[in-house]
Each structure stands twice: as structure tokens, then as C-alpha cells.
Design a protein around this nucleic acid. Sequence first.
DNA 1: GAGCCGATATTCT
DNA 2: GAATATCGGCTCC
Length: 181
Amino acid sequence: MNLAVLLGGEAPEVAPMLLGAVLTRIDDGTAVLLSEVEAYTEDDPASHSHRGPSPRNQSMFGEPGTLYVYRSYGIHWCANVVTNRRGVGEAVLLRGGSVVAGEDLAISRRGRPDHLADGPGKLCQAMGITGVHDGSNVLEGPFRLEPGIPPRHISTERIGISRARERRWRFVAVEEADPAR
DNA sequence: GAGCCGATATTCT
DNA sequence: GAATATCGGCTCC
């Protein structure tokens, strides 16, 4: 599946397709295999784009593939990949994954050897994603997204929000069946 | 492992 | 002033 075509779709449909994809940072070699994502759309009361463009969320309305990076709780950075066409505020929050390249750098950034990218803020810290990357595009760089084979996954309620909880737009890769079981 | 809490940018009321 | 798309350190099992 062509990435540009994929990202032109609607966020709730694109999100599960990004499971198994690898986000690579070209300029330092770090890469994360995505295992957890969430979809947000414009008519979604829980989405930052719900009330229209603002200085913070403008990149969420950009071209598909745009990175929307925002500061969460005043401390952490969180990254989304924008979907759908320009002018539509849809994106997929990169909620977690596992570091598959550049592990040493990820460990030094995180300051610990474990839990490198098992949360949206941690994923950004491990890859060095900050506000300066807001508005860059995964079709260009310095971040590249390579679709993989989507693993088995389940959808659940999203995390950390209070509105529109009934939209089960959190997609989590299911661990491969344990051979010992 | 579960539960509480503090840090604090940005938006909304 | 309150809420939030979080995290890490702490306590107490």
C-alpha cells in the first residue's frame, strides 16, 4: 500500500494500518515499531482540532503525513501523523511502540534502559521529537514512516480523555500467541 | 502491581 | 482558575 494514498484516508481507518509500521529518524538512525495508536477527527469532541485551527494545532490541518507535535501537560511532547486531505483536522496519535534501531541513543535520551517508547511522551523522548518537528512531513523527513504488515490488534476506548469515550479508536497490537500456552 | 501525586504549557471557562 | 491525548517517583501492598 502506497503511504501517501494510505495517509489520505480517514484517521479511524488509517490508524490500525499504522500498527506494524516503522517510524525512522533519518538524521540519527533511531526507529520505533508502532504497536499502539489512537485516531482523532475534527467532529470528535476529544480532538484538539474540534474547535478549529489555533496556533498550537494548525499543523493538524496540514497535508497528510504532516507531524503534529504538541506539548502535553506542559512537560511531555506527543506526536501525531496527520491524515485525510489538507484543511481537515484529522490525525493519528503515536501512542507507543518498541525501539528497533538506534537503541543506544534512545537509552541515553530516556536516561534508562527500559520503557523506551511505551507511551506517547516516552516515544517522543526516545526519538528526540520536539516542537521543532511540528509541521514536518513523514513523506519528506527528517522522519520517515514505512508501512509494515499490520499485526493482529484490538480496538479499545482511548486513554486519558473524558469526552467521546465511546469511540473505540485506540488500536493496540496483540502480543503473538504464547507458544507455551 | 496498583494508587497517589507533583511538574506545568496551552486552551477554555 | 480548571482541565488536559503524561510520566516518574513514591508508597503500600
